[in-house]
Every structure is written in C-alpha cells, then in structure tokens.
C-alpha cells in the first residue's frame, strides 16, 4: 500500500510537470522550412510555444507533403486541452477519445492531464509559500518564547478565524481570479499549520540535551535552529506540506467548480466536474466520473502520505 501510494504520488507529479509534453496538439519536435521548433517542450517549461506555421500545427501536419525535409514528432497523446472538435460535443468514450469529449468537443483525457498540472501547481506553490512563512515563525515562537511567541499565536488565531473558501472567493471577486492571487491568498491562510506544528516541536526540542549542549557551546540561535532543530522537524513539515497541498487542491477545484477558478487558462478538474453535473441527466457520465476519480485519487494519495508520515513520526 505504501509503495503504491508513493508511486501514485510520483505519477501525479510527473504528469503535472510534463503535461504539455504528454498531451498536446503541438509537436514535441518539428522541422519547419529548415528551422527546428520545440513548441510542446517550450510549453512544458513555461515558455511561449510560438506561432504555428499554418492555422494550427495539426493543419500544417495534415498538409505536409510526403517527401521533403520538414517533419514533426507529436506527444504520445496528440490532443491539446484547448482545441475542440465542434462535430464531437460531449461524445461518450470511444476509440478516438477514450475518455470522451466535453462541452466544446475538447478531449477529456488531455484536459485531465493538464488539469493535474493546474491542481498540483496550485497545491505545491501554495504549500511552499505557507512553508516559507510558517516554519520561520514557528521556529522563532517556539525557541524564543515570550513576546514573540504570544504575537505569533495571536496571528495564528486571527488567520484561523477566516473561512478559507470565502476569502478566496472574495479575493477572486475583488482582485480578479488570477493564479498569483489564489496562491498568495492560500499561502497567507495556511501558514498557520506549519507555524503551529513547528512551534510545538521546537518547544519540546529546546529542552533536549543536544540542543542545550549546542547552546552551551556558545552557538548562536540561527545556527542552533538551522543545524540542530530544523533537521529534526523534517517529518512533521513533510506531513503538514501534504495536508496543506491537499487543502489547496480542494480549494482550487471548488473554485473552478463554482466557475471562479484561475485554472491555468481554464483547464481544471473542477471545471470539468461542473460540466458533468450540468449534463449528467443527459447521460454524459464521463464528464463527472473521470475528473471526480482523478481528484479523489490525488486527494486520497496526499492524505494517505500525510497520515503514514504522521504515524511513523510518532
């Protein structure tokens, strides 16, 4: 079970990282009029793929003469998440589109693959920001105590009072639903998880012999925290990271489900699920079943990793 969980998590991370190279209607590698192009790879690392030589890459490919220097290598799944086939709207799964197509005839598998990128990018960025804010505050609060501790605890209480989804909704309405606004809001709301656990652990570690020895030898607070306290916290921080990332994934999906998400140019599991809910009575089961399974699988995987970590850490 544990190996399966770890493997699944790596699969999700891999798919998210490589999404534009796995499912795309742009080629991985192409030779256009003697010049080399790598549009799908450029998209993978976040660069502009550049204009297609014809109306689209697919059109260019179809019109390419058999003989000639030009050629292209397409990704393993040659459908992009945005280009739809108007002739195939909400098609049920069949050979050409094994997971069917959506409202505007876009391939569901390609959208799931790119949706994983959106979900995990939000999850990892928000949890990373929360970690950068929460861990130092927790260390200072636990190690210094006194006024610093009281201030951090008050701030934690203050932030805990805000209902996350409502605040995220409000920010989406007030500042426009951008990806950066979502990540910053989620990070600013969820650093408390890191701060609380790190503070509690630091309080306990502060009295341990090896920390007392290091302090007795005259090491500064920064050195003691970095070299002696921080390494002990790795398990607790990893657990919290998985929890916080899972929460961020849920918020992003819920926001897209409600139609207010950032969904890196509109590709999100939550958005697909909303389509599925709207058209379920017409028999379009593939639009809620597949994104629902993807989301549930990712969340259960994250939760199980966090749970196992928490138990092995004691």
């Amino acid at each position: 079970m544990n190996r399966l969980g770890a493997a699944l998590l790596w699969v999700f991370l891999g798919v998210a990282a490589l999404a534009p190279s796995l499912a795309n209607d742009k080629p991985l590698l192409a030779r256009v009029g003697g010049a080399w192009r790598v549009p799908a790879l450029a998209e993978t690392v976040g660069l502009d793929p550049g204009p297609a030589p014809a109306e689209t890459w697919k059109v260019w490919w179809a019109e390419l003469p058999d003989e000639g220097p030009d050629f292209a290598v397409f990704p393993p799944w040659p459908h992009g998440p945005r280009a739809g086939d108007p002739a195939r709207i909400r098609a049920l799964p069949h050979a050409a589109h094994p997971l069917g197509t959506d409202d505007t005839g876009r391939d569901v598998l390609a959208r799931l693959v790119h949706g994983a990128r959106t979900a995990l990018l939000v999850g990892v960025c928000a949890a990373g920001l929360a970690l950068l804010l929460g861990v130092p505050l927790g260390l200072v609060a636990g190690y210094r105590g006194g006024v610093a501790d009281a201030l951090v605890l008050r701030a934690v209480e203050l932030v805990l009072c805000f209902p996350a989804l409502l605040l995220v909704l409000a920010v989406a309405a007030f500042a426009g639903g951008s990806f950066a606004a979502l990540v910053v809001t989620l990070g600013a709301l969820s650093w408390t998880g890191f701060a609380r656990i790190v503070r509690a652990e630091t309080l306990a570690l502060r009295e341990r012999e090896f920390v007392l020895t290091a302090r007795g030898l005259g090491l500064g607070a920064v050195r003691v925290l970095r070299a002696h306290v921080l390494p002990q916290l790795r398990g607790a921080v990893a657990t919290t990271f998985a929890f916080v990332a899972a929460e961020a994934v849920v918020v992003e999906a819920a926001l897209s489900f409600l139609g207010l998400g950032p969904g890196l140019r509109g590709v999100s599991w939550g958005g697909l699920l909303a389509q599925g809910k709207a058209h379920a009575h017409e028999g379009a089961w593939h639009l809620w079943a597949f994104p629902g399974m993807a989301l549930a699988l990712l969340l259960v995987t994250l939760q199980a990793r966090a749970d196992r970590r928490a138990r092995t850490a004691g």
């Binding site: 699920l273 809910k277 379920a280 989301l295």
Partner: peptide
C-alpha cells in the same frame, strides 16, 4: 481516511447524481 480526503463539492455532486435525480 478515504472519506476525509473527499471535498464537499464532490460529495454534493455525487449525492445529487445518485439520489437527487
């Protein structure tokens, strides 16, 4: 553990699909 991971909007959608017609 699995149920703890499911978000409300997913549960709501599933209940709606199964029982709400």
């Amino acid at each position: 553990l699995a149920l703890a991971a499911l978000p409300e909007f997913l549960v709501a959608t599933l209940l709606l699909l199964l029982l709400g017609g």
